[in-house]
């Protein structure tokens, strides 16, 4: 198929005369075919979507905890990630809840779930003099919680722009507390 066609065609006699003809025309069709074949191959094998990354900063463990960084219990929202993608939250400390000051409730990761709660609390508490929301979210995950739940809740922090949040180690008291209020949820 690869044929060479002379410029004008038909004008040259016995092929001797070298006139001022254009460059010989090459049939490009097979080359184009090959080009597109290779393009298809590379398009299909390539991994275009680069994975995203989420930055996570943890507090320094080695330093002594700063004493005057105590936060107001009324500004903290504790979110506990439990088994089977369950999620529990309460304001204040466990003690406040036991005294009946705040309720402890169950929620989920939908847009009507914890997101609504965080947005509501954020709006209720307002911002401090630097314009940062006063709300502090404390995230505790049980050992049985899935990694996805952790990423989801961190994601909610980004979505709701709750600037202050921390991942805190869960203690047995928290698990017992959840078990007391939601029997059977931690077994």
């Amino acid at each position: 198929m690869a044929e060479m066609m002379e410029g004008g065609g038909g004008h040259d006699k016995k092929g001797k005369k070298k006139g001022k003809k254009g460059a010989p025309r090459v049939d490009m069709t097979p080359m184009v075919d090959l080009g597109f074949l290779l393009i298809t191959f590379f398009m299909l094998t390539t991994t275009m979507s680069k994975p995203q990354a989420m930055e996570l900063n943890m507090p320094d463990k080695t330093n002594e905890p700063v004493k005057d960084q105590l936060v107001k219990a009324s500004q903290t929202l504790t979110v506990i990630l439990g088994k089977n993608d369950k999620l529990y939250y309460h304001m204040g400390t466990i003690k406040d809840v036991e005294e009946g000051q705040y309720p402890v409730e169950q929620s989920d990761f939908s847009s009507q779930g914890i997101r609504k709660v965080i947005l509501q609390k954020k709006a209720e508490l307002g911002v401090d003099d630097k314009g940062i929301p006063k709300l502090i979210v404390v995230i505790k995950a049980m050992d049985e919680a899935k990694y996805r739940a952790m990423v989801d809740i961190l994601d909610e922090m980004h979505i709701t722009e709750a600037k202050r949040y921390a991942i805190v180690q869960i203690i047995p008291e928290d698990v017992a507390f959840i078990e007391k209020h939601f029997p059977g949820s931690t077994i």
């Binding site: 990354a53 989420m54 320094d60 463990k61 049980m142 050992d143 049985e144 919680a145 990694y147 952790m150």
Partner: peptide, 27 residues
């Protein structure tokens, strides 16, 4: 996404022991 948080916690604790407090989560 289905990994238990316990293992992730172990990994994060290991990093924190080495005084690494800033890392990325691939998503």
């Amino acid at each position: 996404r289905g990994a238990d948080y316990k293992v992730i916690k172990d990994v994060i604790n290991t990093l924190q022991d080495l005084n690494i407090n800033r890392f990325n989560l691939v998503t």
